[in-house]
């Protein structure tokens, strides 16, 4: 009961506010076009009828929540997952490059962090470049990556995954540098008194100490990976994936389809973040973490 009151209710309340505002905006934004249509057809509908019409246009400027919900439901649950109209299919395409890119990104981030923590030259030289890499707009870089890789014969999943990697290694690298440096001086002194080797200090102290930092940064990285995968689908002319769906929707003014794809993307992102958080909690519990 407490959980319901403390956690579910506030979220529902905000959701209701958003839905109400969304409806209001949908009416407001679709009204001019609807008025235009009615004028040409010589109709003079009443207020209620008019509002109803603004909320059921086939290609509205701003689709109403129920239109998006209906489209999302149909394309998620009522279509075969192999169908090109299925959101599950498109989500899977995007998810596969997200996961591949996330795996690359996490591995790369950890590798960079280990290098930075152990090699002074890397500490001085690499960090500014890593930060600079993230100031470059990914939308500008993505087409170049695709073109360059296509020129050497790499197409398909890998280029998209690499764009995910580009976005996801950064939070992991920064988080892991902090994590690997998190053991306090007393613990490091302790290892020194045992005459522990650098690798013993690394595996028995630095690595376990960095685990909470790893999962915190992986949560950020997995969401960034998804963004990277979607962005990667835009310039590739990809025919499948959430990014491709968004692009196609914008070509044909299928606003409802676009919003439904957007919702699908959000759901995938939420699931990924929750999954990483869950794995993180399981690992922390197995490492003797105090139950929250």
């Amino acid at each position: 009961m407490d959980r319901l009151r403390d956690r579910v209710f506030p979220v529902i309340a905000i959701l209701l506010v958003i839905v109400a505002a969304w409806y209001a905006f949908a009416v407001y934004m679709n009204a001019p076009f609807q008025r235009d249509l009615d004028r040409r057809a010589g109709l003079t509908p009443g207020t209620v009828e008019f509002i109803g019409k603004t909320l059921s246009q086939p290609k509205p400027t701003m689709p109403a929540p129920h239109q998006v919900a209906q489209n999302f439901f149909e394309n998620t649950f009522l279509r075969k997952v192999t169908s090109a109209r299925s959101l599950v299919y498109h989500s899977w395409v995007t998810l596969s490059s997200t996961l591949l890119g996330f795996t690359f990104g996490t591995a790369l981030g950890i590798l960079i962090a280990v290098g930075i923590v152990h090699v002074i030259a890397l500490d001085r030289s690499l960090m500014p470049w890593i930060i600079a890499s993230q100031t470059i707009p990914i939308l500008a870089v993505a087409p170049m990556i695709i073109v360059v890789l296509a020129a050497i014969g790499i197409t398909g999943l890998i280029p998209k995954a690499l764009i995910s990697t580009y976005l996801s290694f950064f939070p992991v690298a920064v988080g892991m540098v902090k994590g690997l440096r998190s053991p306090d001086l007393m613990h490091l002194d302790l290892m020194h008194t045992y005459n522990a080797s650098a690798s013993q200090t690394f595996w028995k102290l630095r690595v376990p100490a960095s685990v909470p930092f790893l999962f915190a940064s992986m949560k950020v990285a997995v969401a960034a990976s998804l963004v990277g995968a979607i962005v990667g689908e835009l310039p590739t002319g990809a025919v499948a994936g959430i990014g491709a769906k968004l692009l196609a929707g914008s070509y044909y003014s299928q606003t409802i389809e676009m919003w439904a794809a957007l919702v699908a993307g959000s759901v995938v992102a939420a699931l990924l973040v929750v999954l990483v958080g869950f794995v993180g909690r399981v690992v922390e519990r197995s490492m003797g973490g105090r139950p929250a």
Binding site: L190, Y194, N195, K204
Partner: peptide, 28 residues
């Protein structure tokens, strides 16, 4: 390894059980 050192704080590793903390120098 001629000495054992006890610090101001217990400085136990929070991810290790007590026996595994006591066993840390032996592992090393």
């Amino acid at each position: 390894r001629a000495y054992g050192y006890v610090f101001q704080a217990a400085a136990l590793f929070p991810w290790r059980t007590i026996e595994s903390n006591v066993g840390l120098p032996l592992e090393i």
